[in-house]
């Protein structure tokens, strides 16, 4: 799976957009549902980091979308079966789309995105925005999990409790997560300043970039 992860960020992004277009263009749930299942199976087969967390989120998303769309369509007078089918199609589209972009996010490190952007000689502001957008989300997810571990390590029972209590504790992690996000933003800002990032100067990269982005620097003695 390493080669899949090492695909150039822009290639992954293009594939994700393609999958999304297909998901939204295919008619109804008959095609949409198998496509979404395929997308989730791909995440599993590719051993995408955080797959279980994604799955939980996808199940929650699916239930919410089906419930809200079905209720909405029933109010508008649509027959039950037709309403459920439309809602199912919509949920399938969302799952396929989120799965495609989840793969891009989880397998593209900020460093590999920086490298892909720098190799294309993109303006520094574009490089920065892309790296932070796609790089920060996995970081925040990990911070969220780290805070949960901190709560466990301090004796807060968040495992052997009911689902509503677990959900309440998860929401309570918002404040420390916000504090951590601000700290991370500060660290990135300081790092950019002291390491010479300049919006007026195009970056270079140490990596060899093509269809794949070199993941690891080969030491000379290793090559021999």
């Amino acid at each position: 799976m390493s080669a899949l992860y090492d695909l150039n960020f822009f290639v992954k992004l293009a594939c994700a957009f393609l999958v999304m277009f297909v998901a939204w263009l295919v008619p109804g749930w008959v095609y949409g549902l198998p496509l979404s299942v395929l997308a989730v199976v791909f995440l599993w087969a590719a051993k995408t980091p955080g797959f279980r967390a994604y799955l939980k989120g996808a199940v929650l998303l699916t239930l919410l979308v089906i419930a809200s769309w079905t209720v909405n369509l029933l109010i508008q007078g649509m027959p039950v079966l037709a309403a459920v089918q439309v809602a199912l199609g919509m949920a399938a589209r969302l799952v396929t789309t989120t799965a495609a972009f989840y793969f891009v996010m989880e397998t593209s490190s900020p460093g590999s995105i920086l490298a892909a952007c720098s190799a294309l000689r993109l303006p520094p502001i574009v490089t920065l925005v892309l790296s932070l957008t796609f790089g920060m989300i996995p970081m925040l997810r990990e911070d969220f999990e780290r805070i949960a571990d901190a709560q466990r390590a301090r004796g807060m029972e968040i495992d052997a409790v009911s689902f509503p209590t677990r959900l309440r504790f998860a929401l309570a992690r918002g404040v420390p997560l916000l504090v951590q996000a601000i700290r991370t933003a500060h660290a990135i800002s300081l790092s950019l300043s002291i390491y010479g990032f300049d919006l007026k100067r195009k970056r270079t990269t140490w990596r060899n970039v093509g269809l794949l982005v070199e993941p690891r620097f080969p030491l000379k003695e290793e090559k021999r």
Binding site: P110, S118, G135, I188, G196, K202, T204, T205, W206
Partner: peptide
């Protein structure tokens, strides 16, 4: 931790050089 972010080891070491267009 106050001055690093989620980069790989080589990315962080090379970061000042890449930013200066070396």
């Amino acid at each position: 931790e106050d001055q690093i972010w989620d980069l790989n080891v080589e990315d962080l070491i090379a970061f000042p050089l890449e930013n200066r267009g070396v």
